[in-house]
């Protein structure tokens, strides 16, 4: 190998101006046996790089593991079949939602109809006979009037105070 050329390449290498091919050339040169003494200190660097390339590698077992995983993956969702299955799942989702809505609707309707059939005692008539109804109403009104009168008696007592107060005010005004 041309030593001048190596010298040149090395200078370019330190300046980061070498191409990948030139760097490969340098690597080959320094990994060969005949490295001149003046470059003995630089050779280990390129040998180190070479070693790094050789040492850090994965064994064949690794390939097998990865390929086994990939094959396992490949089997489950294989192409067109996967699409059909996915479509089926989507349809199932839609169907499930529809089913829920229909059932809910059914129960709501049931509830509504039940309520409609039942008689509301506050709105519908309770007595058939008008006389009976009259008596019942009278009874109810009497109850109200009785309680009302009871209340008025109490209020009359308060009225006494009121009168007294007004009298005082009158005397004060005089």
């Amino acid at each position: 190998m041309d030593l001048d050329r190596i010298e040149q390449l090395l200078a370019k290498y330190w300046d980061c101006e070498t191409t990948l091919e030139e760097e490969k050339e340098l690597g080959q040169f320094f990994n060969s046996e005949s490295v001149p003494a003046k470059w003995q200190s630089i050779a280990p660097l390129f040998r180190y790089y070479e070693d790094e390339r050789k040492n850090g590698s994965l064994d064949g077992l690794f390939d097998e593991q990865v390929l086994a995983q990939i094959e396992a993956k490949q089997e489950e969702p294989a192409g067109g079949k996967g699409k059909i299955i996915r479509l089926f799942y989507d349809m199932a989702k839609v169907a499930a939602v529809a089913l829920i809505l229909v059932t809910a609707g059914y129960f709501v309707r049931e509830e509504y109809l039940n309520k409609k059939d039942k008689v509301d005692p506050y709105i519908a008539d309770t007595f058939e006979d008008p006389k009976e109804a009259f008596e019942e109403t009278k009874k109810a009104l009497m109850l109200i009037s009785k309680n009302f009168n009871k209340g008025r008696k109490e209020v009359e007592k308060v009225g006494v105070f009121n009168e007294a107060q007004e009298k005082i005010k009158e005397t004060e005004a005089l």
Partner: peptide
């Protein structure tokens, strides 16, 4: 074949 580079 790239695995060793990735590994390093």
């Amino acid at each position: 074949p790239v695995k060793d580079k990735l590994y390093r």
